[in-house]
Nucleic acid binder design. Sequence first.
DNA 1: CCACGGTGGTAGA
DNA 2: TCTACCACCGTGG
Length: 179
Amino acid sequence: MTAARFPSALKSTMPEIAISGPIQTGNDIFVAHFSSTGLAGLDFPKPAAHGRIEFRTSSDKLQQDWMALTRAALEAILAGRKPRKLPPFDWSQGTVFQQSVWRALLKIAPGETMSYSEIAREIGRPRAVRAVGGACGANPIPVLVPCHRVLAANKRLGGFSGGLEWKRRLLEVEGVTVQ
DNA sequence: CCACGGTGGTAGA
DNA sequence: TCTACCACCGTGG
């Protein structure tokens, strides 16, 4: 059994998407995906997707609570505030390394930033700087897991898989100006 | 500004 | 296992 030696073997159990649903804030419609253990993914609004997405709904009370928590947390962060409570996250798709990075991201408060190398130091892998960038890019729950608060050294913007416009906007509402 | 080398995790073959 | 990616970073022109 090689699973223990290769963290990526964790990916063998994909979370089944139990429900997914829209979260509208202003003009933007995010889509949240939930498995049986929590929030597994959050998609940025897709311009053309409005009439085309089919949502699976659930009458499960717990999952409806998660949806409400997700909506409230998203609205809070988009307004530059710290969310009161977060839904449980299903990080089962992530490797051990990625999960350690994502855990570190949750400790960055709104309005604060860290560099990729600071994150690397924080998780005890000071030379894995580039890999931290990769893990941020693989974050399935942007905004709530605030990978937008990670900047390149010298306070440059760095990258963002959801599009740099979103990174700028998220930082701006938190009072962070870049460059 | 640019080039480059040192990095380490990941996916795909 | 091998290899080719990379949301990096420091140093050197």
